[in-house]
């Protein structure tokens, strides 16, 4: 694990009108690290994640990714986003394209690869999430877990330096969660840098390098999972951890 953070969030602020959801957040993620963000709903964790690829514009502070401040107006955000994959709660697959079409679109239009090469890489990415036999299926022919794995393949195909997961299993039936977590486990083994907002506490305990607890727009506590779950230092963390079953 390298010591220079690939993602460095500094004093990040975000408000919706008068409601301040991020009140100065500092967070560094090193390469090959799997960082879990937990916290009650409304604590600002999804907003923090969405500021990391500028799906949300922040109101103050900086987000340095791989040496570039992505909040700067002069930053070519489309170029940065190729290097930051994102996986959404509701999958957001393109319903008019097959699985391989979903994965290949950005390869063709962003990386400008020829069609044959894009499809080849798309199939390789689908193979990585265990769906090489579903390449020609449309999203409505796939289960939720399969759709989410196609979405992960779509993010991976661009060979990002980091992947953001926004509650990737929250919309899935319980029996389908495992297949998605398995893919994430494989990614971790392969050394992918991941920032994950999720309620899968057992997975966090087992797989995360670091757990960050957020509440009311602040990072309250962070540390290795054994510490945050087993021996939380702050009262609010203790309160939250005691109320989740795991």
């Amino acid at each position: 694990m390298s010591d220079t953070p690939i993602l460095d969030v500094q004093g990040l602020r975000k408000s919706y009108g008068k409601l301040e959801v991020l009140k100065g957040v500092d967070l560094a993620v090193r390469e090959r690290e799997l960082v879990f963000i937990i916290g009650p709903s409304g604590s600002g964790k999804s907003t923090l994640l969405r500021c990391c690829n500028r799906l949300e514009e922040s109101n103050g502070g900086a987000v340095i990714f791989d040496g570039t401040d992505i909040t700067a107006k002069s930053t070519n955000i489309n170029a940065v986003r190729q290097k930051i994959g994102m996986v959404f709660q509701s999958f957001n697959l393109y319903p008019h394209m097959s699985a391989e079409g979903n994965v290949a679109l950005a390869l063709r239009k962003v990386l400008k690869r020829p069609k044959a090469e894009a499809l080849e890489r798309a199939r390789a990415a689908l193979d990585r999430v265990g769906l090489s036999d579903k390449a020609e299926n449309y999203p409505n022919q796939l289960s939720g877990g399969q759709q989410q794995r196609v979405a992960i393949a779509r993010a991976l195909a661009l060979e990002p330096k980091m992947v953001l997961f926004d509650e990737p299993t929250s919309a899935l039936d319980p029996e389908l969660v495992g297949s998605v977590l398995e893919v994430m486990r494989d990614l971790r083994t392969a050394g992918m840098t991941m920032l994950v907002v999720s309620h899968e506490m057992r997975f966090a305990r087992e797989a995360a390098d670091r757990v960050v607890f957020m509440d009311e727009g602040h990072i309250v506590e962070e540390g290795p999972p054994e510490q945050v779950f087993g021996d939380p230092q702050m009262p609010r963390t203790r309160d939250f951890v005691s109320r989740i079953d795991h």
Partner: peptide, 15 residues
């Protein structure tokens, strides 16, 4: 979410 998915892969607004 369709916009967000597309933009998050680096596609521009027009694309």
């Amino acid at each position: 979410g369709q916009w967000e998915a597309a933009r998050s892969t680096g596609l521009g607004f027009g694309q």
